[in-house]
């Protein structure tokens, strides 16, 4: 299986490096979102006497620059892609292989991360020079962060695989996907650090998976988390990975019976 993962990931790297310009434009587009959040929250902090509930402008800068890397790690095969996969019959080719498609998705997009991180580094340098982040992580935080970004990737792959499989029941489910992404935006730490949300929202976020795909990896590096909190956070990621895997396999077994193999 390691050979499979390495080979498919390598193919992902090869394919994505062929589209360097497209990837760069994609990433630049992606940077616009956190820069808007960063400017807004920095302005609010400045108007509030230099900080907002403990967040200084430098803290916001650190949060949203790390955000850009975590966002890249969050890119997985989207549920929208499932529509194409099913309507065009692309899933048929995957079903003929003696490897579950989820392994292919995990391996391929892991390869893409290599390209994304390579292209991200100069962008992060420019953002750091412009916004001056306050960032002084400890070694355990750095190690936890390196694990957490991959944990986030695994969880989000599982969840979006589950969501995408709804397409096996009904072909057009864009509205459902949008509902999911709105909830994720609010309760993951993507729009705003969860610490700035009302207490009840933070409690809700704790029991949902979104936080562990976005907020936690960022906090692991930029917030003042104890070692115990880091381990607990990684534990939650393991838990959600297992839940996501179980859910994905359970729905797959039911959904695939409905696959009509159209499009070829």
């Amino acid at each position: 299986m390691l050979d499979f993962y390495a080979t498919v990931a390598r193919a992902g790297v090869q394919e994505q490096f062929q589209y360097r310009a497209a990837n760069y434009l994609y990433m630049i587009g992606m940077v616009v979102e956190p820069v808007i959040y960063l400017v807004v929250w920095s302005t609010v902090a400045a108007a509030n006497g230099g900080e907002l509930r403990g967040f200084t402008a430098g803290d916001f800068a650190a949060y949203y620059i790390v955000w850009t890397l975590v966002r890249n790690m969050n890119i997985v095969f989207t549920p929208f892609g499932w529509e194409h996969r099913i309507r065009e019959g692309r899933l048929s080719g995957m079903l003929l292989r003696p490897v579950h498609p989820i392994h292919y998705d995990l391996a391929y997009f892991a390869g893409w991360k290599v390209v994304a991180i390579t292209l991200w580094i100069p962008i992060a340098v420019v953002l750091s020079l412009v916004f001056r982040p306050t960032l002084s992580p400890t070694l355990p935080q750095v190690l936890a962060f390196l694990l957490a970004i991959w944990g986030a990737y695994v969880i989000r792959t599982m969840l979006l695989f589950v969501l995408g499989m709804v397409t096996l029941w009904t072909t057009r489910v864009t509205a459902l996907f949008e509902l999911y992404f709105t909830a994720e935006l609010l309760l993951s730490g993507r729009l705003v650090p969860l610490e700035l949300m009302p207490a009840w929202a933070e409690r809700v976020a704790d029991v949902l998976p979104f936080r562990w795909t976005f907020g936690f990896p960022i906090e692991a590096l930029v917030a003042d988390l104890s070692n115990a909190e880091l381990v607990a956070g990684l534990g939650m990621q393991v838990l959600w990975s297992v839940i996501g895997w179980g859910l994905a396999m359970w729905i797959w077994r039911r959904g695939i019976r409905r696959y009509a193999a159209v499009g070829n």
Partner: peptide, 28 residues
């Protein structure tokens, strides 16, 4: 194996040899 004449199962953007290499890994 199933070969469908109107369906492309190779990797569109990769050289053919790399697609074969991927099949090597997939089929072990």
């Amino acid at each position: 194996t199933l070969v469908m004449g109107n369906r492309n199962q190779l990797q569109w953007d990769l050289p053919v040899v790399d697609s074969f290499e991927m099949n090597r890994a997939i089929f072990r």
